Simulated scan of single mutants.
Amino acid sequence: MKRHHEIMFLLLTFVLAMGPITATAAKEPELRKEATFEIPSSVVNIGKENTISNPSSELPRLAPSKFTKELLENSKVKIENPNLIRILNESAVTKSPLSFGARATIFLGEWALNYESEETDPNWKYQKINTNFYDNRGGTGNYQIHYVQESQKTIKGGLTSKVTHPEDVQKMMQEKAREKVNLPLSFETLIGAGTKHTHVYNIPPTRVGYLYAYAPAVSEKGKLTYGEVYLLLKGTKQKIVVKNVTTQEIGAWIPIQDHLSFSFETRE
Rank of each mutant, 00 (worst) to 15 (best):
Y230C: 10
V200W: 12
L231Y: 04
I203Q: 10
N202Y: 07
R207P: 02
H199C: 05
V218W: 00
L224S: 03
E220F: 05
K234G: 06
Y230G: 08
Y230T: 13
T195N: 02
T236G: 11
E228F: 05
L211T: 05
Y214E: 14
L224N: 08
G222S: 15
Y210D: 00
L211D: 00
L211G: 00
A213T: 14
A213M: 06
T206A: 09
E220V: 11
P204G: 09
L232A: 15
R207C: 11
V229E: 01
G209D: 02
A215Q: 04
Y201I: 08
G209H: 00
K237C: 11
K237S: 12
L224A: 06
Y230R: 12
G194W: 09
P204D: 11
A213C: 09
K221Y: 06
T206Y: 11
T206L: 13
A217Y: 03
R207Y: 10
G222M: 02
T236K: 03
Y201K: 02
P205Y: 07
N202C: 12
L231E: 05
Y210H: 13
K196F: 14
E228L: 08
T225F: 04
Y201A: 03
Y214C: 14
Q238W: 09
V200G: 15
T195C: 08
V208Y: 11
T206Q: 13
A215M: 06
Y212W: 05
S219L: 09
T206I: 10
T195A: 06
G227R: 00
A215F: 02
K234R: 14
Y212F: 07
G235V: 12
G222P: 07
A213E: 06
Y201T: 09
Y210E: 01
Q238A: 08
K237A: 10
G227P: 01
L211C: 04
I203G: 01
T236Q: 09
N202H: 10
K196C: 13
H199G: 12
K223V: 15
G227F: 00
K223N: 11
S219G: 13
G222T: 05
G235T: 11
G209C: 10
L231F: 07
H199V: 12
E228R: 04
Y214W: 10
E220A: 13
G222D: 07
Y214T: 14
K237W: 07
T236V: 09
T206F: 15
S219T: 14
L211K: 01
Y214R: 12
K221T: 14
L231V: 03
